[in-house]
Design a protein around this nucleic acid. Structure first.
Lengths: 361, 361
DNA sequence: ATTAGCACTCACTTAGTAAGAGTGCTAATA
DNA sequence: TATTAGCACTCTTACTAAGTGAGTGCTAAT
């Protein structure tokens, strides 16, 4: 009776597969990514780069299943990759750098950055759209992070008797504007003095530090400089009240409907779950927030999100001065074309880094 | 042999139905709106406000079908309203003013406007969300129209050596900002002079007139006032290039996933069509752009949009000084709770009008 | 004018059957 | 010993047939 080769050889250590097993795992994943159908031994044997009979492949597949890399949906079906299988595939079997991205696609990407108007929100929106078009998955982009964003300027424009528009400009080119209602009896002179004071004190401070800085350093000086300081403090509190929440870096989702073209999502309940996930911005942020700089791949349950348990997320960070300031992500089924998406995100993150660096300098 | 009552009586004129026919049509529509199932004569007869036997009702229904108000999905099914039936129902059989909106719902609406921060984009976003929640349909809101928006102020903030942020503030409180790259060799002095000049000339001009005004009046004075006028003109052209397109009044969509809860949209192809429609902003705008002030109901094919041919759109305009400046809309199946939605939109449009009027004055 | 009665239609459900893809095991082979 | 051919077995999918039930239209009675 035949025993599992790898068990016999003591090779069941995670991550160590024979060359033939790698070849077969790779074939299964490649094929499944392309067809979305379970693949059987005969089909694999037909691939010209494999010189074994279906029977041999069946044996190896049984082993790979035993080790948890493959799954059999039902007895008489072929095999599909498990999450562990995808993980191994991504970690050991692909080489994104070897992927050729077509000229057309590259041109599409470049086009984004050569537009006359470089308002960065437009750039991000357009990127979200184009990225979803060239990948056929859903793109999710996290705007420049407040964490690395510093206040550059405060500006005030009176709008009417008792309301003003306050404009906060940051070093990344982001412009925040709010309409404030001011208490009766506050003169425009007083407002102007206040703004000048704030400008002199707060320019250059990272947004997320603004409130603590105000509390620790500004209030004191305030009391000595402004006779009616309580009123002014109320205005300031209004001004910065929701600035340090990271609800501030916007999420841009593009091509959500691409999900609908994936055969694994032809179930209405699943669709409902995913689309309503997209409407819950906070969860989307959690989903694509990376742990480190560079490319990151989270497969299925690694997303820690029930709804996305058979989805994968690939993210790339973009940077200014070596500091990651935002994330570009792709959301799709675990059955995703990992190498191509990784390659495209590498390109794009690079372009984003250049773009924001140019904007910043 | 029995002939159609209305034909016998010469009453087949559009819009003229006997009281009993109205009662039955009304019953069919009401019931279908609630259940999404075709309704038969027996069920209608059971309703306590109708004192006729199923047979009589069957006869009337056959007449209503002949006249095009009802449809029979197949021989042995009950009847459902046709688009013409819905139209008659909306025009003659409902009385939205009589609808009571629950305190909870009203409070939800009021809450939107009592938030501290009245930045209007936030207000609209929140409205889109809440409106979709209280109606269980999809809400589409068209932001204040550029058409009635005038330039209030131009402001410049230098961002880096060769780029500036230009901020355009409008009378509705809208703030447009763009990052511009300026040609080498243009001094900040020159920019400032330019801005002062533009401010003195263009404040108060409706945005959609900006370009023509520049062409007709400004360029001339320009040539006399600025020695290097060609360069300045290039900057101005950059500045206003996409302002007069109405791509400018943003569309806000809320609760798109509510579509998925409607039984008539349990087909993946339809879902795909509708969601990708939502991603095509321009078409969405077309869809909810009203022809007149006030409430407007477009049923099914009246939308002139294949994809939305079994959807209805109800819109309400909001105004400042009697001028309509934007639209609040509800998108749902033709089988929509018209009276309730109309009532809610009336409330909301009123609040919007008040809100923007307050902002404007 | 209205209604009871009845034959008829048609979608929907359930059960049963046949086809096909793929497997695992055994025995033969290099 | 590693590989492969052969074969019985499993399980999904597609298809067909029969049965059910809701609702109709027509006829005849009230």
């Amino acid at each position: 009776m035949r025993l599992s080769y790898s068990l016999l050889l003591g090779l069941e250590v995670d991550g160590v597969l024979s060359e033939r097993q790698k070849l077969i795992l790779s074939a299964v994943v490649d094929n499944y990514i392309q067809s979305a159908e379970p693949i059987g031994s005969r089909s694999i044997a037909k691939r010209n780069d494999i010189g074994f009979s279906p029977a041999t492949i069946r044996n190896e597949m049984a082993d790979l299943e035993e080790m948890g890399f493959l799954i059999q949906p039902h007895t008489s079906a072929g095999r599909i990759p498990s999450n562990k299988g995808y993980r191994y595939y991504v970690d050991h079997l692909i080489n994104p750098q070897g992927i050729k991205i077509s000229k057309d696609v590259l041109n599409n990407i470049r086009k984004i950055f050569t537009e006359q108007f470089n308002e960065f929100e437009q750039v991000i929106e357009q990127t979200a759209t184009i990225l979803s078009e060239i990948t056929n998955y859903t793109s999710i982009i996290l705007g420049p992070e407040i964490f690395n964003t510093k206040l550059k300027h405060i500006q005030i424009i009176p709008l009417a008797d008792n309301s003003i528009i306050v404009i906060l400009v940051t070093n990344t080119g982001k412009v925040e504007h709010k309409t404030l209602t001011i208490p009766k009896g506050v003169s425009s002179d007083e407002i102007e003095r206040l703004v000048n004071f704030l400008n002199s004190k707060l320019v250059g401070v990272p947004l997320y530090q603004l409130k603590s800085k105000i509390k620790s350093e500004i209030y004191q000086e305030f009391i000595t400089n402004f006779n009616n300081y309580e009123r002014s403090m109320a205005i300031i509190d209004q001004l910065f009240i929701d600035l340090d929440q990271d609800s501030d870096n916007k999420v841009y989702v593009g091509g959500a409907t691409n999900i609908l073209n994936q055969p694994e999502f032809n179930d209405l309940e699943i669709i409902k779950d995913i689309f309503s996930l997209f409407e819950r911005t906070d969860e989307v942020k959690q989903l694509i927030k990376p742990n480190n700089k560079g490319i990151e791949v989270r497969i299925g349950t690694e997303n820690n999100l029930e709804t996305a348990s058979n989805c994968s997320v690939i993210t790339a960070t973009y940077e200014v001065d070596g500091e990651s300031i935002g994330t570009i992500g792709i959301f799709g089924p675990t059955r995703m074309n990992y190498s191509r998406v990784i390659r495209i995100l590498e390109y794009l993150a690079d372009d984003f880094t250049q773009f924001f660096t140019r904007l910043y300098k």
